[in-house]
Design a protein around this nucleic acid. Structure first.
Length: 553
RNA sequence: CGGGACGUAGCUCAGCCUGGUCAGAGCGUCGCCUUUGGGUGGCGAAGGCCGGUGGUUCGAAUCCACCCGUCCCGACCA
């Protein structure tokens, strides 16, 4: 197949839009792949849609390979289904009514609809089932951002497995996980499978597939030895041990005028910042004031603390702090505090400097268990250069894009929607479900984040909009067309740049668009009938006879 | 939802502080010429309710208020 650039809607741009930050956002817009309609709403232009469809096809092949069945459920969904599962009131759900006032939902995923259909499954003999579709999802995101990375409407491949029991779910879940790994590998992505925060959903197993990128919403922690990967929220890196000063028999007050930060404190006392502790008073949703304590050189992990408290929380106000401690933030510590203290595990052993609950004073030699009685928990945020909890290797922290998510739902949806089956023992049981999502648009953005240089995108062949980009320079249009035809005959999809433009502009567009190979026919070709074949990713260039095109990769 | 920034031509932006030759530039687009292996050079042209509404003023892109939109940070995120 040959597409002529002169006829294509391929609006490339020399400049990126001023408000673009992420590389994938800039390059996809500049390359004429996507255009914004409104905040978080994007149109896929012809080239972008080709890439999207290539990713879809890879997903489809791998889903089919594990026996999943493709179907299509509607976007517009009666609100009743969502009311039954108690998701109707979620703020990110788009809601609307028909002319007679019946409420509908634009779903952010299709658990309800597919479970509604699963209610038609009657017997254990019909199980397991895995169903999937590619369908539009709408989410009233409070803050769309970064091009395709966080949007309000997008296409998702979501699948749902229905099993008779947990053991069956384990199998469906594992198969999906394996299929997902194959999908992302085929898309040319570096990715990691990590435990996902199950959050308030609790209990159920859930994993994310994260792709390291220059932009993204997740923070990925990996070990340089390759044996550990985790989401920052759940990572448990091992911090370096502190250098402690000589121990004291009892805490000792030391005047620290104007010293309110850890850096200043460590400097002032001439000690290791890791030998200090940092106190963060927070207030839980039931109004209790709790003191969270981490090492001075660490940051509090809000997610971990939230898990520990089993409650949302907010920082205490100045007034609350003053009332509870008699001092202001910057001089707070656990000694003498009459309330719940949650101390990070790093504070279990050793003596630390802590705030004295007296403005301008600190305490040396504060020891947990002797001078205050905390609950210990892992509440510190893992950081760069922590040690790997598996092998002790160095941990690396980087931003990442969530490509896909696999989730064991259990009976969360089948029970409220009455999706039951008759089991071998003659009893009616709810279907045990899993759900599994991939956003092809995000995959597309992640591929760009991982495969680009200063000139543009360098698509992996598996998802490239065209296999080859044939550049026709003036005078060599004839040879260029023959080259395109030879490639097309060999089964390649070809973009033929037959536009009346300068060579430099065509080359710049070819680099930007990023097809795996560029074939140039120009003045040199007029002399010997050969064309130049250049690999986008490596820049390697060879001269070939037109007749030999399509015979090499 | 809190904080910040921005909104002038298709794109990137200047002009605004200090109201009155302020409707501007570059790129892109169109026509002609030039020529053609990395965004060429020349000549000419089209293109804007200066986000919207109200106010101040003799006069508003410029000052004020409100609204809308977009982006960034945070909160949130099946």
């Amino acid at each position: 197949m040959i597409a002529r650039a002169s006829q294509l809607f391929l609006p490339t741009l020399r400049d990126a839009p001023a408000d673009a930050e992420a590389v994938s956002h800039k390059l996809l817009v500049r390359g004429g792949f996507i255009r914004q309609v409104s905040a978080g709403l994007w149109t896929f232009l012809p080239l972008g849609w080709r890439v999207h469809r290539k990713i879809e096809q890879i997903v489809r092949e791998e889903m089919d390979a594990i026996g999943a069945q493709e179907m299509l459920a509607p976007v517009l969904t009666p609100a009743e289904l969502w009311q039954r599962t108690e998701r109707f009131d979620a703020p990110e759900v788009f809601k609307l009514e028909d002319r007679s006032g019946r409420p509908f939902v634009l779903p952010l995923s299709h658990e309800e609809t597919l479970t509604f259909h699963a209610a038609e499954l009657q017997s254990y003999r019909q199980l397991p089932q895995s169903w999937y579709h590619f369908q539009t999802k709408d989410r009233d995101e409070p803050r769309p951002k970064a091009g395709l990375l966080r949007v309000r409407e997008f296409i998702m491949k979501d699948s749902y497995s229905f099993d008779r029991d947990e053991a069956g779910l384990d199998v469906s879940y594992r198969r999906h996980g394996e299929a997902y790994a194959r999908i992302f590998a085929r898309c040319g992505l570096e990715f990691y499978r990590v435990q996902a925060e199950s959050g308030l959903m609790g209990g159920s197993e859930s994993e994310d597939f994260l792709a390291p990128a220059g932009a993204g919403e997740n923070v990925l922690v990996t070990c340089v030895n390759g044996d550990y990967a985790a989401d920052m929220d759940a990572a448990s890196g091992v911090p370096r041990p502190p250098e402690f000063p000589p121990p004291l028999a009892a805490p000792q007050e030391v005047e620290t005028p104007g010293v309110t930060t850890i850096e200043a404190l460590a400097e002032f006392l001439g000690i290791d910042p890791a030998a200090t502790s940092k106190a963060m008073p927070v207030v839980t949703s039931d109004g209790t004031l709790v003191l969270a304590l981490v090492r001075g050189d660490d940051r509090l992990s809000e997610d971990k603390l939230m898990g520990e408290l089993e409650s949302d929380f907010r920082p205490a106000t100045d007034e609350e702090i003053r009332a509870a401690f008699g001092a202001s933030g910057g001089s707070l510590g656990p000694v003498g505090f009459k309330g719940r203290v949650i101390a990070d595990e790093t504070l279990r052993e050793g003596q630390f400097v802590a705030g004295a609950n007296r403005d301008g004073w600190h305490l040396r030699g504060v020891q947990a268990g002797r001078d205050y009685e905390p609950e210990f928990a892992d509440i510190r945020a893992t950081k760069e250069d922590d040690a790997c909890p598996r092998c002790g290797g160095r941990l690396h922290v980087q931003t990442a894009i969530e490509l896909g998510h696999i989730f064991k739902l259990g009976t969360r949806y089948s029970v409220p929607l009455g999706a039951t089956f008759l089991d071998e023992d003659g009893r009616q049981k709810p279907l045990v479900m899993g759900s599994y999502g991939i956003g092809p648009g995000r995959v597309m953005a992640a591929v760009v984040e991982q495969h680009h240089d200063e000139h543009g995108i360098a698509w992996p062949a598996s998802v490239a909009p065209y296999d080859a980009h044939v550049v026709a320079l003036p005078g060599a249009e004839e040879i260029a067309l023959r080259a395109a035809e030879a490639l097309s005959a060999a089964g390649k999809d070809v973009l033929l740049d037959d536009r009346d433009l300068r060579a430099g502009e065509k080359f710049a567009d070819a680099d930007l668009i990023g097809c795996p190979v560029r074939v140039t026919a120009g003045r040199k070709s007029l002399e010997d009938g050969k064309v130049d074949v250049r690999e986008r990713a490596t820049g390697a260039e060879t001269r070939l006879d037109v007749a030999d095109l399509g015979k090499e990769p």
